[in-house]
Simulated scan of single mutants.
Amino acid sequence: MTHTVAASDTSTLREASERFSTVLWNDSADPMQLARSIDEFGAVGATCNPVIALDAVTRNLDVWAPRIAEIAKERPTASESEIGWAVVEELSVQAAALLEPAFRASGGRNGRLSVQTDPRLHRDADALVAQAVRFSELAENIIVKIPATSVGIVAIEEATYRGVSINVTVSFTVAQAVESAKAIERGLDRRDAEGLPSWEFGSVVTLMGGRLDDWLKASAAKGRVLIEPGYFEWAGVAALKKAHRIFTERGYRSRVLSAAFRNHLQWSELQGGDLVVSPPFDWQLRIDENRIPAEDRIDVPVDPHIIDVLLARVPEFSRAYDEDGLTIAEFDTFGATVRTLRQFLEADEKLDQVVRDVLVPAV
């Protein structure tokens, strides 16, 4: 049965959060945005990555420039990169504190603040695990982002085994989502077999639906493929719905998370399921301002005709939508993976530049 949230003066997002098991996370660790998302819309989680951290620092440089200078004095031999990552850690700890009430209330399932491992470590599983363990010790409610690459799948299992709550990132396809969930299960099973302490890990597997849409559009344009207008906007949604169905049927102990918003469907089409939606704060404002209806639609399939057209005309969609569409080795070369890793690496470089401009200002 479909339930529609009635129009009222109350936030559409908050009403949806109260009615459905689908929960809202804020796709930013900026403390001011997160505080508003919690208070106005009922957010119970948040995330950070190099792009988000760079944006938060540059928008609040009056706050962070003096702190960067202080960190440099406290750590006189630290590199620009090390100072930049110290800022990311502090930003994350501040945001994590705002989420502690939700963490306590949910027994650890929600109230999580995601910290991303350094993308420059993406080829080294041991380094990813070591950093994940360290980040997990910054605050009790930290959840650590590890990419769904061939190296990342290894690191996800090992970090889970070491007691780290995981948020899988750089993930765009059903195959990546399923293999990541399996890796988390293997890590948890290893803990159980050794009698290690058990608790609510709250792990999530992100599927970056909007970035999948972006890649499919770019791939189709390169191949000079034209399909009906609007069909690409359903591709990421279709992959998210399919991944959620598989997770539910198989009882995976992680949840699907919808991220990288490009349209409101990546929120409105996923309501009603036990999963996480994580829009940027401005998307939350726009969804609320436009009173987008919140309906139980997670099990409503995407129009089969749209799926058929995408499968027939856009080969990259088949790779993303089919559970066996990619091998683990192919995760590394999938177009959306390459594009996103490069963007994260470029954001790291830009954060280094911000630190450099504070410590060695141009004359």
Rank of each mutant, 00 (worst) to 15 (best):
M208D: 00
D288Y: 08
D27M: 06
R253W: 02
L188I: 03
W215I: 01
A35N: 05
P304N: 08
A97T: 14
A97V: 12
A127D: 06
A177W: 01
I153P: 01
K217N: 01
T337G: 02
A320E: 08
R104M: 13
F317L: 07
N141R: 11
M1R: 09
L138Q: 10
A65E: 12
P361N: 07
W234P: 05
F103P: 02
I246R: 07
R186N: 10
F317M: 11
Y252M: 05
R112T: 10
E70Y: 11
D357S: 15
I307A: 05
N167C: 08
T77C: 00
R224D: 15
E40P: 01
E179P: 01
L188D: 01
V237Y: 10
E316R: 03
E157S: 09
V151C: 07
E158R: 14
S81M: 06
A260L: 03
H305Y: 12
R356D: 09
R262A: 06
T333R: 12
I298F: 04
A175I: 00
S106E: 13
Q271T: 11
Y231M: 15
D213E: 14
G236I: 05
P315R: 04
M1N: 12
V63E: 15
T47A: 05
A336Q: 03
E249H: 03
G163R: 05
A130C: 08
E316W: 00
E289I: 01
A193H: 01
K242M: 01
A243W: 05
V309N: 10
F344A: 00
G230C: 10
S106A: 14
E295R: 15
Q271E: 13
A35M: 06
L275W: 10
V205E: 08
A218L: 07
E137N: 14
K242A: 08
T206S: 10
N110T: 14
G202A: 11
D213N: 15
G45L: 04
I143M: 15
F232Y: 09
M1L: 11
W234N: 06
F201C: 13
S171L: 09
V338K: 11
M1H: 12
L265G: 06
R19G: 07
I306D: 01
D274W: 09
G273D: 07
Q176T: 06
L285N: 04
L285E: 12
G111H: 11
K350H: 09
A181K: 05
S11E: 11
E289N: 04
R211L: 11
N290P: 04
D55E: 13
R190P: 01
A175F: 03
W85I: 03
T160Q: 05
I146S: 05
L275M: 15
W267R: 00
V23F: 11
A320P: 02
L226V: 13
L54V: 06
W267V: 15
P315A: 11
A312H: 14
D288M: 02
V93Q: 06
L359V: 13
V23K: 10
A130D: 14
V354F: 01
P279F: 04
V256C: 14
A235V: 09
I38H: 03
G42P: 02
T77H: 14
Q284K: 02
A130N: 12
S106T: 14
R286W: 04
A29E: 04
R190K: 15
